[in-house]
Design a binder for these strands. Structure first.
Lengths: 98, 98
DNA sequence: TAAAATAGTTTATAAAATAAACCATAAATA
DNA sequence: TATTTATGGTTTATTTTATAAACTATTTTA
């Protein structure tokens, strides 16, 4: 009846990050922060978690003289996101006979 | 871009409870427990929270000689659930230009 | 009548999310 | 050119949640 929700994705900020990354080749910390409105600390923590799970790939380098953290979704991340979308729909459908 | 997710509904078990209650006139504790597979303790706590928020109405009585807790979604609860469904879609839509 | 089941509640613990404080460098300003 | 302010984060602390474990009361069954 109700499909289990991947706890890593069932988090407002992490889900937003994944939602951005799935529709874009890659995105950096500042861009994601702007889109989500998250605090830097919170975003830093959540990016780490997604990275440790293998859902995204993180590259820390420099853009000119400033540090830049670039994120890109992985195949595993795409699968997980799709799974989450599918699972949460089991909670939302008004027509519930599945 | 991303709509805020009502933290009261952004919880696997509470969302499942609301999802059940929105499609049914009313449901009791045992029924909900069966559908969700939740532990009694967890369900008890989450029902209390939904009740305190005014999202559901809870009536504790007896069915024969056994205690029975009957839950029913309120108008406020219906609105909140609909709002949540609408909000989470902003994270799921692949076509993201809204 | 003792044990087990039903229908929960309450309390304790673990895990998460968030906020606050901090660090390093770079750029702007006085 | 010294000092402040901004940028791009990380780390640590605090609060909130979710979950599990323990408990209560009654009831049924063996």
């Amino acid at each position: 009846m109700f499909k289990a929700l991947d706890p890593l994705l069932h988090s407002e900020l992490r889900l937003a990050v994944m939602s951005i990354l799935i529709s874009v080749e890659e995105a950096d910390f500042v861009f994601i922060r702007g889109k989500t409105g998250a605090s830097a600390g919170n975003l830093s923590v959540q990016i780490d978690k997604l990275s440790e799970a293998g859902y995204i790939e993180v590259n820390k380098g420099f853009k000119g003289k400033r540090p830049q953290t670039v994120c890109k979704i992985t195949q595993k991340g795409i699968k997980a996101f799709e799974g989450y979308v599918n699972a949460i729909k089991s909670y939302l459908d008004v027509d519930k006979d599945n």
